[in-house]
């Protein structure tokens, strides 16, 4: 594990909107906050299919993947993405989920291997601290 020290090695994180929902306020705010905290944020845009997300994570050699969902499709899409990451040899990529996730679904997502679920109203500092504390499993 390499701890990410500020202004040293910027962590690369892909922030992806998956599914059909176009609510991108949250993902945009998080993108900017992470940029200002020294991360390299790769934003591929709306309506990403699980296949497209995995391709982006692979080609961008990302340390983290943040998935933003507000339409309630997380139990359909997140398991697919996690499984496809594994199949692509990308187990080392940490997965975060952000958006409207009912409390009963959170443990299910964590069990799948999601590192953390961030709901609405999360202060940006919480996300930044979490990423800094966990650093990168890519460049061990």
């Amino acid at each position: 594990m390499v701890k990410c020290v500020e202004n040293q090695i910027p962590l690369r994180i892909v922030l992806a909107k998956v599914g059909l929902d176009g609510h991108d306020r949250g993902v945009k705010v998080v993108s900017r906050a992470l940029r200002d905290a020294g991360f390299h944020v790769i934003y591929p845009g709306l309506w990403q299919s699980p296949e497209a997300v995995v391709r982006t994570v692979a080609d961008e050699d990302a340390d983290w993947l943040g998935i933003s969902l507000l339409s309630g499709t997380h139990m359909t899409l997140v398991p697919r993405i996690v499984e496809m990451l594994r199949a692509a040899g990308l187990d080392h990529v940490g997965v975060l989920v952000g958006g409207i996730i009912p409390e009963t679904d959170v443990p299910k997502l964590l069990e799948l291997g999601v590192a953390r679920v961030f709901g609405p109203g999360t202060p940006m500092a919480e996300i930044i601290d979490f990423l800094r504390a966990h650093g990168s499993r890519t460049h061990a």
């Binding site: 339409s71 309630g72 499709t73 899409l77």
Partner: peptide, 10 residues
Amino acid sequence: PRSLGEVGRL
């Protein structure tokens, strides 16, 4: 295929 999981949801 893009509708998967979204039909009748919202």
